[in-house]
Write a protein that binds this DNA or RNA. Structure first.
Lengths: 139, 139
DNA sequence: CTTGACCCTGTAGTTCCTACAGGGTGCATG
DNA sequence: CATGCACCCTGTAGGAACTACAGGGTCAAG
């Protein structure tokens, strides 16, 4: 139960379902801090890197841009930042997240409907498109 | 209350918060069918195009690739497709949607926490990163 | 001490847009 | 009726976020 041994870039990539090249790219654009290097110049990652990369990957999968993720990470990093600033950013992101939640919820509902109907002849009345049709600003 | 008059590409783009160039690009890659043209060679869109483009845009915003959206649209289009096939695709997409829902729900929760805490000195214990940390395969 | 899996840097290619350049359309207005 | 001005057309080039080599070094196993 000592500290976990450092991971190589391959380990980290495997643990987060990421390509090795992508991990290096995140380092280049400063989403992921440059880790220590071994004697043989290998990158060595710790659990902090794992958490951070996991966050980045899931954020990307949810449709956030790299800049938005950078902003969310900065919020977590600079905890002595002005409260008003954090509040404003967090509120903006929350509004966006709630819009995405609403859209995803309706899409999940329609997919379940399609799956439920499947068992007879054909997909009678598919409303998948309606699930994400206009219902306010898709800003 | 007659049929709505056809929209120009600018109208359609404005209605879906999309750039005109992007609409033309979707046509080129066959996500959006090529519409009728006016005498002066302007594209003329109807409500079907609006629904479809809206679906595409929201799908992209939710992190689906163009190919995944193509698959979802095909499911809605070819309603006389083999039931088993639609079922398999729908199940795969539903699993992905539910993973995204879980992630977004946790992110929304953490953002609300941050907003709630803001009112005193500093962001004491920010757990935003934990919201999207490892908890199963982020496939 | 070699072999194979893995790491390094760098550059070029892919996807999904985004931004012009150079030119035509269409309607209001003098 | 002509002359703006906003909008449309077809390109092609650029940017964001990866992805895939090429050419070479590291290292544990046998």
């Amino acid at each position: 139960m000592a500290h976990a041994p450092p991971m190589t870039i391959g380990d980290l990539a495997a643990a987060t379902n990421t390509r090795v090249e992508t991990v290096r790219w995140y380092e280049k654009v400063k989403l992921l801090p440059a880790p220590e290097r071994s004697a043989g110049n290998y990158r060595l990652y710790g659990p902090e890197h794992l958490r951070r990369l996991s966050f980045i990957r899931r954020g990307r999968d949810l449709g956030f841009t790299v800049d938005q993720i950078r902003e969310l990470l900065a919020m977590a990093d600079d905890r002595d930042r002005s409260c008003a600033e954090v509040d404003t950013i967090a509120r903006a992101h929350l509004a966006q997240v709630e819009r995405k939640l609403a859209d995803l919820t309706r899409l999940a509902h329609e997919l379940r409907d399609v799956i439920g109907q499947c068992g007879c002849g054909s997909v009678a009345d598919c409303r998948i498109i309606e699930a994400l049709s206009p219902h306010g600003d898709p800003s």
